[in-house]
Nucleic acid binder design. Structure first.
Lengths: 243, 243
DNA sequence: GTTAAATATGCGGGATCCCGCAAGACAAGC
DNA sequence: GCTTGTCTTGCGGGATCCCGCATATTTAAC
């Protein structure tokens, strides 16, 4: 008596997943479906789902937020993230919320049938972690300190992407103004923002702050959902500070 | 003897589209498929395709760029854009490149079977334009001057999102420094960026420039593909300026 | 335990940004 | 013509950003 919950907003992908689950897990006798994160959370709570397949990019409430609240309630839930992209923003977002010792997976939608089915069995039956090669590569590059970003640096990157002033960032992280600016300089360095843009010396420089955000977006260090989440956290912080 | 070219990177969606085309257009005797924009361009050129269904968000080369080069070569090509989103950035991007008097369509993937098939017939057989209601609504709101953005304003918004300095923007648009800054003030006004962020008066302001970009991203006035395109155009401009 | 490296903080200054004020340019409408 | 409104440009100044220089403090390494 095993149940699997599918959270995925695309009907075609949903039914494809349904079939895959049925084929890979004959011991599963109930497959639930949710068409966005909000509904998925509800179903997970109601059915105490222990096995979830989760899309990341959904309209109503995205997969990372849904997974976070689900894991907060029951940290031993096994979740397989099934996504189109291996953007650093997503990978970071996921690994930030996975609880200690939880079994989870991250496979791309471009993966083969077999890989998906294998991952389903490994995670749900064997409680193993399965991370796609591309995603794993991303993780390595991200955490490997060559051209990778510290957590603090990443936080500050997000902060300037949100449009905070240096002073605000300093207050938020309990740092001095100058320290924040040091971090920013490191960021500019790592993001390779110091090139001139025009031929005239001393004439065509970028606005470093803005350029850093642009480059981060182009390199997919940041994406919409990361920004959205960060904006929510910022507002929350502003809220508690108010009181 | 009618041919239809499908450009779509998701295999499931591709085969769904294939079926839909077959069902809606029995007079069509050849359906070609491409898995990204680059391949799509090639096939379109090779087969002189006059009827194309195009996804917007693709990895290798996105739908807007592909459509632009295709339309540049044969402006009477009929293209149906089939996308997940009605973001203002996409809508603007599409309407910027559609040639005078061309027949095109924009329907969402969430649309029903019937709507898709109807759109296929309307555009390919009758040369009519078919724009989904949600998308149309977006267009209205975008162009209607209440809370809508001028083309110039939008250009400048893109420029600060790319991280250009005021001076650079001025040079690019042949404006004075001060005019650019006027435009920026309008932008800040329209994007509602002037609110304080903290309780201390005179203490917690946003960095307006950065905040404007953040808000624009959150409101989906800008998205990844728009940035990518803008970055390419910027580099092109820098190139010709060099010589 | 000593050295080296990374990190945090302060000071100061030049560049840029943000913007109020004001004057000229151009078009539309009466 | 006159007015009104929008757009442009210049000037000037305060705030912020970017960053070199110098000094603690912490962390890592041997």
């Amino acid at each position: 008596m095993m149940e699997v919950l599918i959270v995925e907003d695309d009907p075609l992908h949903r039914s494809y997943l349904h079939d895959a689950v049925r084929a890979a897990l004959p011991e599963c006798d109930l497959v639930l479906e949710a068409e966005n994160g909000r509904v998925g959370e509800g179903l997970a709570r109601q059915h105490r789902s222990a096995h979830i397949v989760m899309d990341l990019q959904m309209s109503e409430r995205n997969g990372i937020e849904a997974a976070r609240t689900i894991w907060k309630e029951r940290p031993d839930t096994r979740i397989l993230f099934w996504s189109n992209y291996a953007d650093e923003a997503y990978v970071r977002g996921v690994s930030r919320i996975v609880p200690e010792g939880a079994a989870y997976g991250y496979v791309l939608k471009s993966a083969s049938d077999d890989r998906l089915k294998l991952a389903l069995r490994s995670i749900f039956m064997e409680a193993q972690c399965v991370i796609d090669r591309e995603v794993r590569g991303m993780q390595q590059k991200s955490l490997g300190h060559v051209n990778g970003f510290t957590d603090v640096e990443y936080e500050i990157l997000i902060d300037i992407a949100l449009g905070l002033t240096d002073r605000m960032i300093a207050r938020r992280h309990n740092l001095s103004l100058r320290s924040v600016q040091n971090r920013l300089q490191q960021l500019y360095e790592k993001l390779n923002v110091y090139q001139r843009v025009g031929e005239d010396v001393e004439e065509g420089r970028y606005n470093l702050r803005g350029r850093a955000v642009a480059v981060a977006l182009l390199r997919k260090l940041i994406n919409y959902s990361a920004l959205e989440r960060a904006e929510a956290e910022l507002n929350e912080w502003l809220g508690v500070k108010q009181n």
